[in-house]
Nucleic acid binder design. Structure first.
Lengths: 191, 191
DNA sequence: GTCTATAAGGAGATAGAC
DNA sequence: GTCTATCTCCTTATAGAC
């Protein structure tokens, strides 16, 4: 069973790349089939519509994001270092993708809340990211005896990361991501 | 000189509203002229292209954003209160616009850095926002004798605001904006 | 799986009459 | 300023032959 790279996977890989780098609305079906080197009949055999392709793209990103993050943090036990590395993970991702930003934020800005299914995918992803962060911060401050409670600290760190990733897509650099990494490091070491 | 509302202004107002609420790429020229109740000939008499309309829209937003912010903070002298009110300003803006987010971030996500002129407009706006914030924070900590330097503190507050505004567009609420307002309040009061 | 043809509609933009 | 006509091109999606 299975060829090396199935046609279905090739379609999704090409569409994903185009949606991410040049946007969903400005990517046409014809461009997808041309760059994937497949026939239009094959595309509509595997995917009902362009919208269906968008969902599949984000569902795959959702899975891969956390698999790669787990892999990146594997073997690290100090939660303070984990938090630093979580930001390093985002920095490396931005550099690798030429500062293309977060897949989900981009889709949100292009399509928005009109599409309920899409909005659910995006909200779920962001909730998972926040929960992941909470779990690390809770290990740093297990007794909650800090100036800022764990939940509130998670909220502000989450917002910082979101804002700094956004800034990377505008400025085409990781300056703000490095700033917040530096500041969070200082906060965690001193308090 | 001047009618009550010039045709040129009406075009820009309609286009601005549509670009902001439903996006630039998904808004057509025909929709703009229909909702503005003007003729297509008039549109192209005042604006060279749809792209030209996008620039004019953001240039006007740039001006209005700071005029309204100045007005909102007018009469407030305590920099700590100013910082709180600056975030309240963003919270009110999001509630008023049904959580449509930041005009510039949306344009950045839809068009991106491909359009150099657009990217310049966006970078300038964000730089001005940061400078505005820096000026307030510098009044709070004029001697810099704090754990976090003024520049670094400005960076993280800026990222927090950006991230929390973004979150408002995804969640259709101001929870994260209120969280960061709360946290910043605590930080400023205690340190 | 491939190919081509085509439907049905929308896009941005221009030109000319009034 | 208004109106309508039109140009050219592109869009998503379907159908059928091979």
């Amino acid at each position: 069973m299975a060829q090396k790279v199935s046609v279905k996977d090739k379609i999704l890989a090409t569409a994903s790349d185009l949606f991410y780098t040049q946007g969903y609305n400005t990517t046409g079906i014809n461009q997808i089939i041309a760059e994937a080197g497949i026939a239009i009949g094959s595309l509509y055999k595997h995917y009902r519509s362009k919208n269906d392709l968008l969902y599949s793209y984000l569902e795959k990103q959702e899975t891969e994001f956390f698999i790669n993050l787990d892999d990146y943090l594997k073997g690290e036990n100090d939660p303070k270092v984990k938090l630093q590395k979580l930001i390093s993970y985002r920095i490396e991702l931005q550099r690798k993708t030429n500062y293309a930003g977060c897949h989900f934020i981009k889709a949100n800005a292009e399509v928005g809340r009109k599409d309920e299914h899409l909005n659910e995918l995006i909200k779920n992803h962001k909730a998972k990211q926040k929960a992941y962060l909470y779990q690390i911060i809770n290990q740093i401050y297990p007794d909650h005896a800090q100036a800022l409670h764990t939940i509130l600290f998670t909220d502000i760190v989450f917002s910082m990361i979101e804002g700094a990733v956004l800034s990377a897509t505008i400025q085409a650099n990781t300056d703000d991501l490095e700033s917040i990494q530096n500041a969070i490091q200082q906060i965690v070491l001193h308090y």
